[in-house]
Design a binder for these strands. Structure first.
Length: 1032
RNA sequence: GGGCCAUUAGCUCAGUUGGUUAGAGCACGGUUCUGAUAAGACCGGGGUCUGUGGUUCGAGUCCACAAUGGCCCA
């Protein structure tokens, strides 16, 4: 006997019981062990940081990872799932800074790096219990007992080894990186921090004149005379550039123009001005007249005189990209270059370039070999011997302007309001500042990065050539050092005497150095302990000290394919077996994060991509489409949802409602709706089945198993609808497999939802009678075995998506009758479609019967005749002969659905004269293809039959109201004044008795204790009473 | 400022290679069916498929531009 299934399900209790079962029986571990002989399917867990509480937006990626891994496991693959935790980086440091009320690097160092990092170490796991609990309750199967942790010495050592490999290949170098820098805090800010601090502010808006060098014009005139009119040589010519940061002008070393734009040459009394034609009107040109128009191209290659020759003010001029000091030149000139970023919407179309003060400027400085001039120190003060030297840059602005005005180099000067980033901690304006940083030369393998990407299957596919492909096309070297404390220390030691640098690949590598000191046990490879390790320089014998930086935490996570195994120091074969990954999955913001760091490290080391398939998920936002954030207070804690609605409801809702890559709107209301629509419908179908199966098979477990597992059915015992639902089932299995093979759980779950709908609302509804009829014949057995097969197949099909519900179905429907079955549904194989059972024609035929039934009901509704009331005839008009034949075969179904006695199908060309399109006794309904006409004529016989059905309905409701059991036998009493009703009782007594399980219909007063209701039928009062006759 | 994605009913979403009258669910109003169902069926109101051009015999679908929103990067 099946365990009784209540129509009202307590999902929370059910899921908790199942969690306990999985844990006690170690089902997850078994699901991996039993697949050990199978092909390996490699999954990499992108490590979350556990320094914050998990939100419902963290559930999505965990869910998708789980679904895919469970699916491939059931397909026979061996899918180990090692957990991982990301423990380093700025988020942890900021958390600790806040809790210790530290606001600058100076304060951290004063507090002590050792104590600071101790706090970081514990903060990194602040919410790990919550993460683990959420993971388990969600049903995300992951080996959390053996996670990789980025702060472990072994993990760090693997990172060191990787850096050393790159170092040996000449791919690590020290260069300059332009970063947003807070001059007060003395530190760079991450882009995330910068985003916190944008504010409107008022700044100077200055149009500055740069004098073109006459000799470069002459040279140009000689070889390409036509480009600039030679008459211009009579007066000085100025290029007009715009800036809001005059203090950057001493760092200027180029002007950029748009090659394809037109530039106007304006003539004034004293001079000529050149600026973009499009912007002349906007800026104003009083006192000047246009004398010529030239292409930007013609300006490229000209040279101009700097506003401030750095050599005159004691400032160095460095060459890019080598950063070597250039010789002192008194008659210095800088070039005009072409650049595609020059805006023609604001400014002058001539852009002032200062490589020391802007990322774009620096990049173009590197690629064009410009000069690098840095006239400002890290505290934001102007250096050198300028008139404004020693001032803070913002304070220097007016003095720079005065200086230029006195030399007649300012065309116009005003003030504007615009947004500018400020330090979110101290509100000091940020300076974009080129600072030394360590780089990995990823550009050296750019082509490999791109060709490797072509081997990766992206889901959705447009990321491949879009967001990720573009990112690779625009690859720049990876600045992977951070001037911070809590991270993998950069394993480069530098000689304090001769600047010789050495990269050390391991702890052993350190111990083998000369005169090592500071390598003390217990070993902690973090700062500040690692900073104390020194050794002798092999070049000069000087003292080798570690450089102060730590490594970008994205490097940590990108190193996980190796570092999770402590490769190459241990586990060589495990690493090799588990590389590359078959599957990874994270949200879309990881394209430039983890997806890139994995791909880059793998390409740099092994010249091959790191993963074959990647799902790139959209973000989870609230019900109104707004991003979840602590400040808005709209973050939904997963725990609240899990403990109220259960994991399956949350899982199904997230999978089915929105395609993975789209933005997921999270609404509890929609979650509840999805639950009602799908999980409860499925549950009730399951409950229906067990209810009747228990009635029919009682305690005969053997017989039940026999009947359901190996039904003795001969050809023809299965009805057309049985064959249809089996055909739909197999089609479903095929579609779900196909969707999952292409990493699309949303399509898979939507298909399943569609199947459960037709299973419940067409198959079961149309076949109910076969389950509750008296005799146990082959027809009944066919119905049972068909529905059983659907439910049992569904349990396996559903198990990657809703593992709890699937387990419940499996345990009760399969395990109970088949003790030899596997212990859990998650140890079974994924169903395989039986193609031979798929009958596309039958599927569409039944679909047609459904459609015609709908139209029939619509035709009845038009004239207000209840479906309960039988009618004489329905005439249907279809277009194709095949449709006609299909409907004739399925006529019995349609006849019952629309309750008519006679059913005629015509093809369009047969309709003449026969189709009752305008007859008053018919009601019509149609859609684009089909017409249905229903006879509305009511004969006394039809009316009487309708009344009998109404009486049955009343009696059934009474049985329910009286809380009788489905199988209870009764006696029915009735009293009525209407002779018609008495006739109905006589004529349809047999039918009424059969439907209501009545032994007798007695025309008399009911005995005491009978359940009584009065109803009006056919305008007559009828008193009905029922009494149970079987003992309880 | 650049890139990617989205925009279809009040809300959440489908809509295959361009082809009859653009579909579901929720919500609302009405009717109905039912001894599995918190469900189902039928009718109704509710759509200039974001806008403007273009390609085509024909565009929700293809192309261009624009607007709005989201994300990533400046």
């Amino acid at each position: 006997m099946f365990r009784e299934v209540s129509a009202r399900v307590n999902v929370i209790q059910l899921e908790e019981d199942i969690l306990r079962f999985w844990k006690e029986q170690r089902i997850f571990e078994k699901s991996i062990e039993i697949r050990k002989g199978g092909p390996l399917y490699v999954f990499y867990e992108g490590p979350p940081g556990a320094n914050g509480s998990p939100g419902v937006h963290h559930v999505l990626a965990r869910l998708y990872k789980d679904v895919v891994c469970r699916y491939w496991t059931m397909k026979g693959y061996h899918v180990p799932r090692k957990a991982g935790w990301d423990t380093h980086g700025l988020p942890v440091e900021l958390d600790v800074e806040n809790s210790l009320a530290l606001t600058s690097k100076a304060q951290i160092e004063e507090y002590g790096v050792a104590r600071f990092n101790d706090h970081c170490r514990s903060t990194a796991f602040k919410y790990i219990k919550e993460w683990e609990a959420m993971t388990e309750r969600l049903g995300y199967w992951l080996d959390m007992e053996h996670p990789y942790v980025t702060l472990d010495n072994s993990y760090i050592e693997s990172c060191w080894w990787i850096v050393k490999q790159l170092w040996d290949k000449g791919l690590v170098y020290q260069g300059y990186k332009v970063t947003p820098h807070c001059p007060r805090c003395g530190t760079s800010l991450s882009s995330h921090e910068v985003a916190l601090g944008y504010e409107d502010t008022e700044d100077p808006s200055v149009y500055v004149k740069f004098r073109l060098d006459a000799s470069s014009l002459e040279r140009r005139a000689e070889c390409e005379s036509s480009l600039l009119p030679s008459s211009l040589l009579s007066k000085p010519i100025f290029l007009l550039a715009w800036t809001t940061t005059p203090w950057t002008l001493p760092g200027n070393s180029a002007l950029a123009v748009a090659s394809h734009a037109e530039y106007s040459v304006l003539e004034g009394d004293q001079d000529y001005l050149i600026l973009a034609t499009k912007l002349v009107d906007k800026i104003g040109s009083e006192g000047y007249t246009e004398t010529a128009i030239v292409q930007g191209e013609a300006l490229v290659g000209l040279e101009y005189e700097p506003l401030f020759n750095p050599h005159s003010f004691g400032v160095q001029r460095l060459d890019l990209p080598t950063l070597c000091a250039e010789e002192t030149i008194d008659s210095l000139t800088y070039p005009v270059i072409g650049a595609d970023f020059v805006s023609l919407d604001e400014g002058t179309g001539v852009v002032h370039i200062a490589p020391a003060f802007g990322e774009v400027d620096f990049d173009i400085g590197m690629s064009s070999g410009l000069d690098f001039v840095q006239p400002v120190d890290l505290e934001g003060r102007v250096i050198g011997t300028y008139r404004f030297a020693g001032e803070f840059v913002k304070d220097a602005d007016p003095h720079v302007l005065e200086d230029l005005k006195s030399r007649g180099l300012v065309y116009r000067s005003e003030r504007i309001t615009h947004t500018y980033p400020f330090c979110w901690r101290c509100e000091t304006p940020l300076l974009y500042y080129a600072k030394p940083a360590w780089y990995i030369r990823t550009t050296a393998v750019k082509e490999k990065l791109i060709s490797g990407n072509s081997e990766i299957d992206w889901h959705p596919d447009y990321i491949k050539h879009g967001r990720f492909g573009d990112w690779l096309e625009n690859n720049v070297d990876w600045a992977f050092s951070r001037e911070r404390y809590w991270g993998t220390p950069l394993n480069i030691w530098r000689c304090s005497s001769c600047d010789n640098c050495e990269c050390v690949d391991s702890v052993q590598g350190l111990s083998l150095q000369l005169n090592v000191s500071g390598l003390t046990m217990p070993l902690d490879l973090h700062r500040p302990y690692v900073d104390e390790i020194t050794f002798a320089c092999r070049e000069c014998g000087g003292k080798m000290q570690r450089v102060p930086e730590v490594i970008d935490c994205w490097f940590d996570s990108g190193a996980m394919p190796l570092a999770q195994w402590h490769y190459p120091f241990e586990n060589e074969d495990r690493f090799k077996q588990n590389f590359p990954a078959d599957f990874i999955c994270e949200a879309v913001d990881q394209t430039r994060g983890w997806f890139y760091s994995l791909h880059a490290i793998s390409t740099l080391l092994f010249s091959r991509p790191c993963f074959r398939n990647v799902i790139c998920l959209g973000h989870v936002v609230d019900a109104r489409g707004e991003k979840m954030s602590k400040s808005k207070g709209n973050v939904i804690a997963p725990w609240a949802v899990l403990s109220k609605h259960g994991a399956d409801a949350l899982r199904w809702y997230m999978l089915v409602s929105t395609a993975g890559e789209d933005t997921h709107r999270f609404s509890t209301k929609m979650l509840e709706e999805t639950t009602r629509k799908f999980l409860l419908t499925l549950w009730n179908t399951y409950s229906f089945f067990t209810l009747y199966a228990n009635i029919d098979f009682g305690n005969e477990v053997d017989k039940m198993g026999q009947c359901l597992l190996n039904p003795h059915l001969s050809e023809g015992d299965r009805t057309e609808l049985d064959q249809w639902i089996i055909s739909e089932l197999n089609r479903l299995v095929g579609e779900v497999s196909k969707s999952m093979d292409s990493y699309n759980p949303t399509v898979a779950t939507r298909r399943i939802e569609g199947f459960v709908d037709i299973l419940s609302n067409w198959y079961v509804r149309r076949n109910r009678r076969r389950f509750w009829k008296g005799e146990n014949d082959a027809d009944k057995l066919a119905a049972y075995s068909t529905l059983y097969q659907c439910l049992v197949t569904l349990s396996r099909l559903l198990s990657p998506f809703v593992p709890f519900m699937a387990e419940e179905l499996y345990q009760n429907l399969t395990r109970s009758v088949n003790p030899g079955a596997r212990e859990s549904v998650h140890l079974t194989d994924f169903p395989v479609a039986d193609e031979a059972k798929i009958d596309d024609r039958l599927n569409s035929d039944v679909g047609l019967a459904m459609r015609i039934s709908s139209l029939g009901r619509a035709a009845r509704a038009k004239v207000g005749i209840k479906v309960r009331q039988p009618l004489g005839k329905a005439v249907v008009m279809v277009e194709a002969e095949a449709e006609k034949r299909a409907l004739e075969r399925l006529a019995a179904e349609v006849i019952e659905e629309i309750n008519v006695k006679q059913f005629v199908v015509l093809r369009a060309e047969e309709k003449r004269g026969e189709f009752p399109s305008n007859m008053p006794d018919y009601s019509l309904a149609n859609d684009a293809r089909y017409w249905v006409a229903i006879s509305t004529e009511l004969t006394p016989e039809l009316i009487a039959e309708g009344v009998s059905r109404e009486l049955v309905r009343h009696l059934q409701n009474m049985r329910r109201n009286a809380r009788f059991d489905i199988t209870d036998q009764i006696v029915t009493y009735y009293q009525t004044e209407g002779p018609l009703l008495r006739q109905v009782m006589d004529a349809f007594g047999g039918y009424i008795k059969q439907e209501t399980l009545s032994h007798e219909l007695i025309d008399s007063l009911p005995p005491d204790g009978a359940y009584v209701e009065k109803h009006r039928v056919l305008n007559a009062e009828v008193s009905l009473a029922i009494r149970r006759t079987n003992p309880r």
